[in-house]
Nucleic acid binder design. Structure first.
Length: 294
DNA sequence: TTCCAGGGAGTAT
DNA sequence: ATACTCCATGGA
């Protein structure tokens, strides 16, 4: 498939920490969605893949997003313009909402390598095996499977205290008490409010699920890295009292989260989620020693 | 060994 | 509403 003048950066898109179950082997990215594995690679403006339709690829990798337009809207200052330049072509992936939800419940208070390990363990224990190019892959477990698991089994995957959150949320989804897909047609605020009723889901996890799987590009997740970016590079745009209070703080209160979240959405606009992801990746890649695991 | 991680929930004010 | 505390585990 030829990208033509559609800017795309596959490596940045899969490396920036929005998805956790892709791996690069001999120049190809291998991943699992739905019931099968597929691989994809980019050579210039050529995108090669197997086991997937062109329609699926366009949808999954957000190739329908008008990146030049988005860039023009969020490129408000030199700092984010540098991030846009550095990883130009990086896109917000449209993940499966269910996998995304469980992934970000697991992601709380964990490093990315540890998150990858947890999700791999979950898939190995509860998913179904499939093969591609002689390698083994596992589908992501279904709501039914996780809902009928025991807390101890989930904990054994390295989830720790998150095990009971994953179990209870899985039960709500499986039993039809929570309609994840229906959130897609709700406005951002309402969808977020509903997500936050799930155990293990607070404002940050909700924002990630909305942005990475439910087409809410205005969502602006604020984690430790983004909080650091805002304080260090946009602190002068915050109320002086707030900027001072956040300086050197290790975690945000819910009120502080709301204020940084609101800042991001108001400053960057309807595509704030794209701004967030470029800033997040830029900050992490420029962190001391570039030692962040891919 | 010690520190920290894409935060959230529970509890006391 | 806000502040403080604990959380279970693994990677660095």
């Amino acid at each position: 498939m030829k990208l033509g003048d559609t800017p795309f950066n596959l490596d940045a898109t899969l490396c920036c920490g929005q998805v956790f179950r892709w791996e690069k082997v001999r120049g190809w990215w291998y991943g699992v969605t739905g019931d099968r594995a597929f691989k994809i690679r980019q050579i210039g403006d050529m995108l090669e893949f197997t086991n997937a339709s062109e329609q699926f690829i366009k949808r999954y990798f957000g190739l329908g997003d008008d990146l030049p337009k988005i860039s023009a809207e969020i490129g408000k200052d030199d700092y984010i313009r540098a991030a846009l330049r550095e990883f130009w072509g990086m896109r917000i992936i449209r993940q499966d909402p269910w996998e995304c939800l469980i992934s970000y419940i697991c992601a709380t208070y964990k490093s990315i390598p540890a998150i990858k390990r947890m999700l791999l363990n979950l898939s190995r224990k509860f998913g179904e095996k499939t093969t591609l190019d002689g390698m083994e892959f596992f589908t992501f477990p279904t709501p039914e499977t996780l809902a009928s698991a025991r807390v101890q089994q989930l904990a054994e995957c390295g989830l720790g205290y998150r095990a009971r959150f994953v179990l209870e949320t899985s039960k709500q989804i499986f039993e039809g008490r929570f309609m994840l897909e229906s959130l897609r047609q709700l406005p951002y605020e309402q969808a977020k409010k509903q997500l936050c009723t799930l155990p293990g889901v607070g404002p940050k996890v909700a924002d990630c699920v909305l942005l990475f799987s439910l087409d809410k590009l205005e969502a602006f997740p604020v984690d430790r890295w983004i909080a650091r970016v805002i304080v260090n590079h946009y602190g002068h745009m915050l109320p002086r009292e707030l900027a001072k209070k956040l300086l050197g703080k290790e975690c945000l209160s819910s009120a502080e989260y709301m204020r940084l979240n609101a800042f991001g959405r108001e400053y960057f606009g309807q595509y704030a989620g794209y701004a967030q992801e470029y800033l997040y990746h830029y900050e992490r890649m420029n962190a001391a020693g570039c030692k962040i695991g891919v």
